[in-house]
């Protein structure tokens, strides 16, 4: 399964990902139409800051997802790619998923009265946040590939020390 990996040391907190997330979830996928929509689209990831560290916080599509366990309407489900998705028409806006998410990444769209969360951009190969990040702080990676990368990194450091 692919994960969105955040390298916090690269994040400037520029919020490009937040904007592109909104644009991607607009009716017409461009900024000018998005801001003029009657109910502007909501973002599904959140830049947060603690001290000097900034980072986007986004849905982990948890294996044992508390939002799905809390959903009382069957609106939240896991699709064939392992992504936790929502069926709009079933959501009644009870916000149980917001209450359940320990990461705080399910948001309330009060205008249309549904909960919104990351859907990994089903219309795109690379999610909008990842594609737009100017510093590549966000990357779409394979979990196994990531472990391999980290091992290689350690090896690289070791070998450069030896030299």
């Amino acid at each position: 399964m692919q994960l969105i990996y955040v390298q916090t040391d690269r994040c400037l907190g520029c919020r490009t990902c937040e904007i592109q997330c909104r644009v991607e979830h607009a009716e017409e996928k461009n900024l000018f139409a998005a801001i003029r929509q009657i109910h502007p689209p909501k973002k599904r990831l959140f830049i947060e800051q603690q001290g000097k560290v900034k980072a986007p916080i986004l849905c982990h599509h948890c294996d044992d997802s508390p939002c799905m366990a809390a959903c009382i309407t069957g609106s939240l489900y896991r699709d064939e790619h392992g992504i936790v998705q929502r069926k709009d028409e079933l959501c009644i806006g009870c916000w149980s998923c917001i209450m359940a998410c320990p990461f705080g990444v399910v948001a309330r769209d009060a205008d249309v009265h549904v909960a919104v969360k990351c859907d990994r951009c089903p219309d795109r190969e690379i999610p909008a946040c990842v594609a737009s990040c100017p510093t590549k702080a966000l990357r779409l990676v394979d979990a196994d590939q990531l472990s391999k990368e980290r091992r290689q990194e350690i090896l690289f450091r070791g070998s450069s020390l030896a030299e």
């Binding site: 508390p66 998923c97 917001i98 209450m99 359940a100 320990p102 990461f103 705080g104 309330r108």
Partner: peptide
């Protein structure tokens, strides 16, 4: 308001 309620609940 609902903002980040799950963080506190957890």
């Amino acid at each position: 308001q609902t903002e980040r309620a799950g963080v506190y609940a957890n």
